[in-house]
Design a binder for these strands. Structure first.
Lengths: 127, 127
DNA sequence: GGCGCCGGTTTCGTTGCGGTAACCGGGGGT
DNA sequence: ACCCCCGGTTACCGCAACGAAACCGGCGCC
């Protein structure tokens, strides 16, 4: 069943959006996650990331390839087929990403609470 | 001895600049590191981060305060004194930052090598 | 012959982060 | 009177990232 690549697995309204992390470009972490279950094709990657335009996805994949996180395999078939898969380096980065995700699930409540408390500030009633 | 806050501890030429991480804003991780050894004042923070302008540092500190990573303590003295210190949440984030730094020291060689190999590409000599 | 699939590229526009420079207010030193 | 210190704020600017839309070439299908 395509190993859990649902169209909305990266909902932009997901609260983790507010978390203070970034791995590579905006979509790098999500690509990493999508490739965790094995190689994927270009259009296949656009499904869970369906808001991303081909241009941006291509840029992301290029820089990830350049950094040795993924490999690109093009098969001369018809229709053309291109598969992206994680390298060992990509896998190791995935572990770090998991650590970051653990931090998020563990502390997101604190962060949201801190923001709420900050918004409801004393408003500097000096007078 | 100000616990190791040297002016060049975050050299912009540092190779870790190429690493695919980001915690919060550009300077957040460095502020975290600077506060590891105890509370620091505004101008004191500008020493190791001496390239950062007061505006940007203020923005960074504000958002960190908003997220509950640091606390701001203003003392009504003369000259005015303001101290920033880590919260427990900030400390926990520091641990994650350490994990990221470990990944960097461990895999930076791979990444640099991958980039070098990618630059020296076969250049698609189709003809 | 026209349409669609696949894996992109090209062009253009917008947005927002980061940076530069100047200024501020209150006090103290000389 | 003048300047400096501290902890900022304000106005302005440039660049790179992100995004929308259109296009591309080779092939198969109908």
């Amino acid at each position: 069943m395509t190993a859990g690549l649902q169209p909305d697995m990266f909902d932009p309204a997901c609260p983790t959006t507010v978390m203070p992390f970034q791995i590579g470009d905006k979509w790098t972490a999500m690509v990493l996650l999508c490739l965790e279950g094995g190689p994927r094709r270009f259009t296949e990657l656009r499904v869970p990331l369906r808001r991303v335009t081909p241009k941006v996805l291509a840029e992301t994949l290029r820089s990830m390839e350049r950094d040795g996180l993924i490999t690109r395999s093009a098969y001369d078939e018809n229709p053309p087929r291109v598969e992206y898969s994680l390298t060992p380096l990509g896998h190791s980065l995935l572990k770090l990403l998991d650590a970051a995700r653990s931090w998020c699930t563990e502390h997101m409540g604190d962060l949201v609470a801190a923001r709420a408390a900050f918004t409801a500030r004393p408003a500097a009633t000096g007078s």
